[in-house]
Design a protein around this nucleic acid. Structure first.
Lengths: 192, 192
DNA sequence: CGTGGCATGTAAACGGTTACATGATTTA
DNA sequence: TAAATCATGTAACCGTTTACATGCCACG
């Protein structure tokens, strides 16, 4: 009867965001924890089934009906969620393809690394804008929510990391671009 | 004939770190890109086999011998590596269990979130120390290496992220701890 | 010579994404 | 009522970790 992490996320979402269907849970995940956690339907629906079987959530409303079957967390579910929250968190395996390609940068033309960094800056800037918007909206939309304090904390870590990465990118570009002027070093001719 | 990302990492390591065995490749990955990429033997050995079959690397030395069979990247292998480096990098799916638990913080006793943040600070401080050591050692050990410039760039992004996270942690703790003095809000009694 | 660690490899299990199938509801 | 979209679900596939099996070598 081991629960997957997906199951815990589902449990958590039902706890903090109220009764929802599988579809609704997916949406809630994307718009709230989306920048540090993801789940697909292929995970969520089986998890709902299991949680139901364990009595940690229960389906509400019209049973025979095929339409937005909403689930509610049970007291037993809340207890299981609390236990999981108190357990030590695990460091997820690091996987950053950008850094990997940058690390091997000397194997390609210098322009390759530069372009990757520019692309990273673009993506970071975009998600920074999105987070900044949420930063001003969330307190208004969720005024009074007991979870707000924690939601803002996660958001602020995201903002801090994003800004740090953006800052790094500026310096990195400056370094690589001035390098390029002096010499065309360490490159290899394009082949394609 | 599609190559997995593992295969590219192997290729890259053979390119920048010289001839190595599967065991040696694993070690090189851990000590160089370990903080943003990981591979297990269960991935590496099959990848070596495939790369060999494709002619992108070739086994050197005593063939029948069962001992540290080292591989070398071929010119074809370098070409494939270059092409991969030039292709757009993908954003890896985000998975941060710490942030997830923090997000659900209101469902548990306030001390839970505080303890998690303290633990995060500990881990971050430790990896910061390690990176700072590498920062001073790497230029001496790898003087003259064409890749050094890029290695230092990845390292500096790691340092920047780490410091930003550490800074965030201090503020987050200050916020949560002063909160705790005023009221024991939003908690739920321990049950276990 | 035997024990422990180095090194290679494989099989099973797991977690996760993707693609597909299908029904229900909305809208034009 | 046709088309588009919402919603649920399943099966196949892929990447990855884990556990296990095994042989080689160095050292006592």
């Amino acid at each position: 009867m081991n629960l997957s992490r997906t199951a815990y996320v589902v449990l958590g979402m039902l706890a903090v965001a109220g009764d929802r269907s599988g579809y609704g849970i997916r949406g809630a995940i994307e718009t709230s924890v989306g920048y540090f956690w993801g789940e697909s339907y292929g995970q969520i629906y089986p998890a709902l089934k299991q949680l139901s079987a364990e009595g940690l959530i229960k389906a509400g409303g019209k049973p025979g009906k095929q339409k937005r079957q909403a689930y509610r967390i049970t007291p037993a579910g809340r207890a299981v969620l609390r236990d999981w929250l108190a357990a030590p968190f695990q460091n997820d395996p690091p996987r950053n393809e950008f850094l990997l390609k940058l690390f091997f940068g000397a194997e390609a033309d210098p322009s390759v690394a530069i372009e990757h960094i520019r692309e990273l800056e673009r993506r970071n800037l975009q998600s920074l804008r999105a987070m900044e918007e949420i930063e001003v909206l969330a307190p208004k939309v969720n005024a009074g929510e007991p979870g707000l304090k924690y939601w803002m904390l996660t958001l602020r870590l995201g903002l801090a990391m994003n800004r740090a990465a953006l800052e790094w990118g500026k310096e990195a570009l400056a370094e690589l671009e001035t390098d390029g002027r002096g010499n065309g070093a360490s490159g290899s001719a394009a082949k394609k």
